[in-house]
Amino acid sequence: MNKTADRIAAAAFLAVGALFMVESLRLSKSAYGSAVGPNVFPFLLGLVLVLLSIKLLFETRSYSDAAGEKPPRQYKKFLIIFIAAVFYAALLETVGYVITTFLFLVIGFQTMEKGALWKSIAIAAGFSLGVYGLYVKLLQGTLPSWPIWFQ
Protein backbone atom coordinates (compact mmCIF):
# COMPACT_ATOMS: atom_id res chain seq x y z
CA MET A 1 0.00 0.00 0.00
CA ASN A 2 1.25 3.42 -0.93
CA LYS A 3 1.30 5.82 2.00
CA THR A 4 1.41 9.10 0.09
CA ALA A 5 -1.23 8.08 -2.42
CA ASP A 6 -3.62 6.96 0.28
CA ARG A 7 -3.10 10.16 2.22
CA ILE A 8 -3.84 12.24 -0.85
CA ALA A 9 -6.91 10.11 -1.54
CA ALA A 10 -8.12 10.33 2.06
CA ALA A 11 -7.73 14.12 2.00
CA ALA A 12 -9.56 14.33 -1.31
CA PHE A 13 -12.45 12.15 -0.15
CA LEU A 14 -12.59 14.11 3.10
CA ALA A 15 -12.95 17.29 1.07
CA VAL A 16 -15.59 15.73 -1.19
CA GLY A 17 -17.59 14.50 1.79
CA ALA A 18 -17.37 17.88 3.52
CA LEU A 19 -18.36 19.67 0.33
CA PHE A 20 -21.46 17.51 -0.09
CA MET A 21 -22.39 18.11 3.56
CA VAL A 22 -22.01 21.88 3.31
CA GLU A 23 -23.77 22.07 -0.03
CA SER A 24 -26.68 19.89 1.09
CA LEU A 25 -27.32 22.39 3.88
CA ARG A 26 -28.28 24.87 1.21
CA LEU A 27 -30.88 22.52 -0.29
CA SER A 28 -34.54 22.76 0.57
CA LYS A 29 -35.26 20.93 3.83
CA SER A 30 -38.76 19.84 3.02
CA ALA A 31 -40.56 18.25 0.17
CA TYR A 32 -44.29 18.30 -0.36
CA GLY A 33 -45.94 15.19 1.05
CA SER A 34 -42.69 13.85 2.45
CA ALA A 35 -41.26 14.04 5.94
CA VAL A 36 -37.65 14.03 4.74
CA GLY A 37 -36.35 16.60 2.31
CA PRO A 38 -33.86 16.13 -0.52
CA ASN A 39 -31.05 17.25 1.77
CA VAL A 40 -31.04 14.36 4.24
CA PHE A 41 -29.60 11.52 2.18
CA PRO A 42 -26.62 13.42 0.70
CA PHE A 43 -25.87 14.99 4.08
CA LEU A 44 -25.73 11.60 5.81
CA LEU A 45 -23.59 10.13 3.02
CA GLY A 46 -21.22 13.09 3.17
CA LEU A 47 -20.85 12.52 6.89
CA VAL A 48 -20.11 8.82 6.42
CA LEU A 49 -17.55 9.64 3.72
CA VAL A 50 -15.81 12.12 6.03
CA LEU A 51 -15.67 9.53 8.82
CA LEU A 52 -14.33 6.84 6.47
CA SER A 53 -11.66 9.21 5.15
CA ILE A 54 -10.52 9.92 8.68
CA LYS A 55 -10.38 6.19 9.32
CA LEU A 56 -8.25 5.74 6.20
CA LEU A 57 -5.94 8.56 7.35
CA PHE A 58 -5.39 6.75 10.62
CA GLU A 59 -4.77 3.47 8.81
CA THR A 60 -2.01 5.04 6.71
CA ARG A 61 0.01 5.63 9.87
CA SER A 62 0.60 1.92 10.24
CA TYR A 63 1.82 1.45 6.65
CA SER A 64 5.44 0.49 6.34
CA ASP A 65 7.59 2.96 4.47
CA ALA A 66 9.14 0.35 2.24
CA ALA A 67 9.06 2.23 -1.02
CA GLY A 68 9.69 -0.43 -3.62
CA GLU A 69 11.42 0.30 -6.89
CA LYS A 70 8.70 1.55 -9.22
CA PRO A 71 8.69 -0.03 -12.66
CA PRO A 72 9.12 2.51 -15.46
CA ARG A 73 5.93 4.10 -16.72
CA GLN A 74 5.26 5.25 -20.26
CA TYR A 75 4.21 8.76 -19.30
CA LYS A 76 5.12 10.29 -22.66
CA LYS A 77 3.07 7.80 -24.68
CA PHE A 78 0.17 8.14 -22.32
CA LEU A 79 0.21 11.94 -22.33
CA ILE A 80 0.28 12.14 -26.12
CA ILE A 81 -2.67 9.75 -26.43
CA PHE A 82 -4.61 11.41 -23.63
CA ILE A 83 -4.12 14.92 -25.02
CA ALA A 84 -5.07 13.62 -28.46
CA ALA A 85 -8.24 12.20 -26.90
CA VAL A 86 -9.06 15.55 -25.30
CA PHE A 87 -8.67 17.29 -28.68
CA TYR A 88 -10.73 14.50 -30.23
CA ALA A 89 -13.59 15.24 -27.82
CA ALA A 90 -13.26 19.00 -28.21
CA LEU A 91 -13.27 18.97 -32.01
CA LEU A 92 -15.78 16.15 -32.48
CA GLU A 93 -18.77 18.38 -33.08
CA THR A 94 -17.12 21.05 -35.20
CA VAL A 95 -14.84 18.96 -37.40
CA GLY A 96 -17.09 15.91 -37.55
CA TYR A 97 -16.81 12.27 -36.57
CA VAL A 98 -14.96 10.78 -39.52
CA ILE A 99 -12.02 13.20 -39.64
CA THR A 100 -11.45 13.44 -35.87
CA THR A 101 -11.69 9.70 -35.37
CA PHE A 102 -9.32 9.05 -38.25
CA LEU A 103 -6.74 11.52 -36.94
CA PHE A 104 -7.03 10.30 -33.34
CA LEU A 105 -6.51 6.69 -34.39
CA VAL A 106 -3.51 7.45 -36.61
CA ILE A 107 -1.89 9.43 -33.80
CA GLY A 108 -2.75 6.69 -31.32
CA PHE A 109 -1.37 3.84 -33.45
CA GLN A 110 1.81 5.75 -34.28
CA THR A 111 2.36 6.72 -30.65
CA MET A 112 2.02 3.14 -29.50
CA GLU A 113 4.60 2.04 -32.03
CA LYS A 114 6.21 4.03 -34.83
CA GLY A 115 6.26 2.64 -38.33
CA ALA A 116 3.87 0.87 -40.69
CA LEU A 117 2.22 4.22 -41.42
CA TRP A 118 0.14 2.93 -44.31
CA LYS A 119 -1.26 0.11 -42.24
CA SER A 120 -2.22 2.60 -39.49
CA ILE A 121 -3.88 4.86 -42.04
CA ALA A 122 -5.79 1.97 -43.57
CA ILE A 123 -7.08 0.67 -40.22
CA ALA A 124 -7.99 4.18 -39.00
CA ALA A 125 -9.81 5.00 -42.22
CA GLY A 126 -11.57 1.63 -42.21
CA PHE A 127 -12.76 2.08 -38.62
CA SER A 128 -13.92 5.70 -38.87
CA LEU A 129 -15.68 5.29 -42.22
CA GLY A 130 -17.00 1.87 -41.23
CA VAL A 131 -18.56 3.06 -37.97
CA TYR A 132 -19.95 6.17 -39.65
CA GLY A 133 -21.43 4.20 -42.52
CA LEU A 134 -22.90 1.48 -40.31
CA TYR A 135 -24.27 3.77 -37.64
CA VAL A 136 -25.45 6.80 -39.57
CA LYS A 137 -26.39 5.37 -42.95
CA LEU A 138 -27.60 1.93 -41.92
CA LEU A 139 -28.94 2.42 -38.40
CA GLN A 140 -30.02 6.06 -38.83
CA GLY A 141 -28.10 7.19 -35.78
CA THR A 142 -26.81 10.70 -35.12
CA LEU A 143 -23.15 11.59 -35.38
CA PRO A 144 -21.61 14.92 -36.41
CA SER A 145 -20.75 14.16 -40.01
CA TRP A 146 -18.34 16.55 -41.73
CA PRO A 147 -16.79 19.90 -40.75
CA ILE A 148 -19.47 22.54 -40.23
CA TRP A 149 -17.81 24.94 -42.68
CA PHE A 150 -18.18 22.27 -45.35
CA GLN A 151 -21.92 22.15 -45.29
Binding site: L27, Y32, L45, L56
Partner: peptide
Protein backbone atom coordinates in the same frame (compact mmCIF):
# COMPACT_ATOMS: atom_id res chain seq x y z
CA UNK B 1 -12.19 0.98 4.38
CA UNK B 2 -11.34 1.67 0.76
CA UNK B 3 -14.22 -0.47 -0.48
CA UNK B 4 -16.64 1.42 1.76
CA UNK B 5 -15.25 4.76 0.62
CA UNK B 6 -15.91 3.74 -2.96
CA UNK B 7 -19.45 2.60 -2.15
CA UNK B 8 -20.32 5.82 -0.37
CA UNK B 9 -18.67 7.87 -3.09
CA UNK B 10 -20.83 6.07 -5.69
CA UNK B 11 -23.95 6.72 -3.63
CA UNK B 12 -23.01 10.40 -3.34
CA UNK B 13 -22.46 10.71 -7.08
CA UNK B 14 -25.93 9.26 -7.60
CA UNK B 15 -27.47 12.21 -5.74
CA UNK B 16 -26.26 14.65 -8.41
CA UNK B 17 -29.12 15.85 -10.62
CA UNK B 18 -32.80 16.52 -10.14
CA UNK B 19 -34.21 14.91 -7.02
CA UNK B 20 -37.02 12.71 -8.25
CA UNK B 21 -39.19 13.16 -5.19
CA UNK B 22 -39.18 16.94 -4.83
CA UNK B 23 -37.78 18.06 -8.19
CA UNK B 24 -35.08 20.13 -6.50
CA UNK B 25 -31.80 20.37 -8.43
CA UNK B 26 -28.97 18.99 -6.31
CA UNK B 27 -25.28 19.76 -6.81
Amino acid sequence: TKAWIMTVFGLLLSTIGLDNVSGVARF
